[in-house]
């Protein structure tokens, strides 16, 4: 996935899921197909269907989290990628994975956890699965 496509995936994901029209950043946001949105999640979550089931359980238990921007910020913020969407575009996939792993481990160390159907999960991980749930529903 090239840098420009990644940036638009990020922006378009939020827009698509929230149903909000955003200013064009080049190619129109609404023109990004759903599969590209899923592609971002696939970097971090290979099985979005499985993750989506967990994510739905999380959103059911925590309805206040049903806020796409909040979920996105909740995942990307702790990853400390300065430069926002551009930084995501320019960061190798392996580095993204390493960062999210570190964030998740830090969550466990700090006790930032939630319980989803008995699974004790990092809050960041839960938000990632929540995004997968929303994307999975939208793609279908």
């Amino acid at each position: 996935m090239n840098n420009i496509a990644r940036r638009h995936v990020l922006v378009s994901l939020a827009a698509m899921l929230a149903g909000v029209m955003l200013p064009s950043l080049g190619p129109a946001a609404g023109e990004v197909p759903g599969s590209q949105a899923v592609g971002l999640l696939n970097i971090l979550v290979p099985d979005t269907a499985a993750a989506g089931r967990l994510g739905r359980a999380y959103l059911t238990a925590h309805p206040a989290e049903l806020d796409v921007q909040r979920l996105v910020d909740g995942v990307l913020g702790p990853m400390r990628l300065s430069g926002g969407a551009d930084a995501i575009d320019s960061t190798p996939e392996a580095e993204l994975i390493a960062r999210i792993r570190r964030v998740v481990i830090d969550d466990y160390l700090a006790g930032r956890i939630v319980n989803i159907d008995g699974w004790v999960l990092s809050i960041t991980e839960a938000r990632l699965y929540a995004l997968a749930a929303l994307a999975d529903d939208k793609v279908r």
Binding site: A50, A51, A132
Partner: peptide, 17 residues
């Protein structure tokens, strides 16, 4: 089914590359 979902969802976070 629960185990398989968690294994599939979390493999990038917990498994070998």
């Amino acid at each position: 089914a629960k185990h398989l979902d968690m294994l599939a969802a979390s493999s990038k976070l917990t498994g070998r590359g």
